[in-house]
């Protein structure tokens, strides 16, 4: 893909955006929004698994039986 700036030997008054992929902004923002939504859903579903499923309930000693990797990744926060 062609870079937005090909040389710094130019008139600064004529230079606009510096970043690559000018014209693709809407798609890049859409990807950001999708990831934001995915993160929240991932977190809420993780908490549901952890707190609602019987395997996620801590026993009387306070230790959790739920040690699957999927649940370990969101155990804090």
């Amino acid at each position: 893909m062609k870079p937005t700036i090909e040389s710094w030997q130019l008139n600064p008054l004529e230079v606009g955006p510096l970043y690559p992929w000018v014209g693709m902004e809407v798609w890049m923002v859409l990807a950001t929004a999708l990831f934001c939504g995915y993160f929240l859903i991932w977190k809420i579903r993780g908490e549901q698994r952890r707190y609602v499923l019987p395997a996620g309930e801590p026993d009387s000693n306070g230790s959790s039986h739920n040690n699957s990797p999927a649940d370990e990744e969101d155990h804090n926060g």
């Binding site: 008054l13 230079v15 606009g16 955006p17």
Partner: peptide
């Protein structure tokens, strides 16, 4: 994003 303030795209 980073922009020099020149003519808008």
């Amino acid at each position: 994003g980073p922009h020099m303030g020149g003519a808008p795209e």
